[in-house]
Design a protein around this nucleic acid. Sequence first.
DNA 1: TTGTGAAGTGAGTAATCACTCATTTAGGCG
DNA 2: CGCCTAAATGAGTGATTACTCACTTCACAA
Lengths: 221, 221
Amino acid sequence: MNEPLEPWMEELLNGASGNSMTEKQSRIFEAAIEIFAEKGYSATSTSEIASRAGVAEGTIFRHYKTKKDLLLSIVAPAMLRLIAPFVLREFKDVLKTEYESFDQFIAAMIENRLDFLDKNKSLMKILLQELPFHPDLREQFRKIIFSQVKERVEKVVDRFKEKGQIIDLPTSTVIRLAVSSIAGYIMIRTFYGMEEGAVWDDERERQATIDYIMRGLAPEK
Amino acid sequence: MNEPLEPWMEELLNGASGNSMTEKQSRIFEAAIEIFAEKGYSATSTSEIASRAGVAEGTIFRHYKTKKDLLLSIVAPAMLRLIAPFVLREFKDVLKTEYESFDQFIAAMIENRLDFLDKNKSLMKILLQELPFHPDLREQFRKIIFSQVKERVEKVVDRFKEKGQIIDLPTSTVIRLAVSSIAGYIMIRTFYGMEEGAVWDDERERQATIDYIMRGLAPEK
DNA sequence: TTGTGAAGTGAGTAATCACTCATTTAGGCG
DNA sequence: CGCCTAAATGAGTGATTACTCACTTCACAA
């Protein structure tokens, strides 16, 4: 029921990004990512993309029918790569592995997705910025999340619930609480540098977050 | 040290929104909020604002020097109103009141800001969307948060820490954990309707969130 | 070498952009 | 009424927009 791994997904995953692109095309691709992240999609002109990529403006439209087509070719694969661990066989081990304890599972998830986010900040910024304005994209995202990701995470949570390791709340509530705590940690970590003098002990904060989640979700004694 | 309540704040708070505006100006103001929220600032043209407001395009520039000036006149007061409870005398009671228990305090905060957010969704969407692209706005926001809000919330948390009601973690960590849990609850609640068949028992979810925070921040026995 | 198709070019296009300004309209005061 | 000032107008501005197209360059197989 959740094994389809449709071909268009695979296509998107290795996809556009680097495979069968000419050098100029990938220069366009990279330049677009940079500028979209800097000033937003609407505020970015194709002429600026062309000049930063060092190509003629016409070249952009050889490879991408429209400006929006360029955006989609950037954002759609990024979306899939973000949730890849949940939909791909090769990565599914993260979920398949029988973690003995819930905190090990959470630590693994944080580790895994944090690497990805750190390496793809621009991509994620564009995705986050443009999702509200493109219903088609949003719908695609929603569908994948609900049909692929949600089910699998629910399975893991249910397993830990049965084992008596976490509290007996609705599974969706448990996920919401844990995810929001993790997301909060990631966001603060990402946008750090805002507060000048402050120190951020990453290891300590991460452990505090995991401990917080564990206490919050501990079964009532 | 934190009592200044500078005059420009007061000015912004009653501010632009409805006081000394002609009818056409406030029609422009409202139309701009609508369209900015729908398609984003950059993708919105002044001609569209004019036509939705039912005025000539020139009228916009009678009241606002530039398009960006119009944006700022919307976003700056919204920013202040968002954090008003923390900077205004009249509202400071929320913080001044001696809540006996930490969960009462959190419940009050949620109640208070949720009302506001529900009534100002468009405003908040614009603020969230444009903050990353306007360093001046972001800096203003950052300054107020750190100089006004943070100090006051820290005081409250410290008080509960001294009373032994919450765990002995760095105050900023405690705030981060609680805020991210609350923000998660608010966001899911706000963007609901995404999942069709699902039911959202608001009272239950809110209480679950508060309980989760309380368990997560409970002092080690 | 020559032929062929794809890649790349940049001048050109109509549409739209934010913004200006000379002019008209409207509202209150004497 | 007439007078004044602020509000409102909309045609007009040059700049910029996404996109097109006739053309040139390039890589490579025949």
